[in-house]
């Protein structure tokens, strides 16, 4: 019922399109979820750590540079900024340490779902019929470690872009192909 793994092109060839829910109503409660790439969580934590450290270093340099004498007010602002950035960075690190493993996705014949959130858990389900286009987004770090984010656009607008982060590149490409070759898209799109 749920073609969960799509590692090989053969999976696409065996593609069936039984109508959902004639035998038993498919439910979001019964989704078979797949985990994101194992590389995602560590990379994400590293990025948060590096960003925080970089920002703090920049402020530290600006604070103690020898060329320009700063007014005391500015120095106070810098000090507060250090603390704020440090705290936010630490909290983000801790939060994602526990939240990242909760992120998971599920692919069914007719739709694709993504679940995330530690305290506020959210499952978004995107019917493939309503997809307008699909993109793979890869930043420099994602390219380095071989990850990709899958973005699925519907007519719901930019606020409701469906995105799955941290997929292995090959897997992301497979999912993209699966969506693009979906019968609904090729016929109704």
């Amino acid at each position: 019922m749920n073609p969960t793994v799509l590692d090989t092109p053969e999976a696409l060839a065996d593609f069936s399109n039984k109508t959902v829910a004639t035998d038993e109503l498919a439910s979001l409660a019964k989704l078979n979820f797949n985990a994101l790439s194992a590389k995602y969580a560590p990379t994400h934590r590293l990025v948060i750590l590096m960003t925080t450290l970089l920002l703090m270093t920049l402020i530290l340099i600006a604070h103690h540079q020898p060329w320009l004498a700063l007014p005391t007010e500015v120095k106070v602002v810098f000090e507060v900024a250090q603390w704020v950035i440090g705290t936010i960075g630490l909290l983000a690190y801790l939060y994602n340490y526990f939240a990242d493993p909760k992120k998971q996705y599920s692919l069914r014949e007719q739709d694709i779902s993504y679940q995330s959130g530690l305290v506020f858990n959210k499952t978004v389900c995107q019917p493939i019929l309503r997809v307008q286009h699909v993109e793979l987004k890869r930043g420099p770090i994602e390219r380095k470690v071989g990850l990709a984010s899958l973005q699925v656009f519907s007519a719901g607008g930019a606020m409701h872009t469906f995105e799955i982060p941290g997929l292995d590149y090959d897997n992301a490409e497979n999912i993209r192909q699966y969506i693009l070759s979906h019968k609904d898209l090729t016929q109704h799109g």
Partner: peptide, 25 residues
């Protein structure tokens, strides 16, 4: 409907409640 969402905080889950979201164009 373009997209459907199911939201449940930790507190809601304990009370078996949820919020739902329907995204239209």
């Amino acid at each position: 409907v373009q997209q459907a969402g199911f939201k449940q905080s930790w507190f809601l889950k304990r009370k078996q409640l949820c919020s739902v979201e329907f995204v239209l164009a």
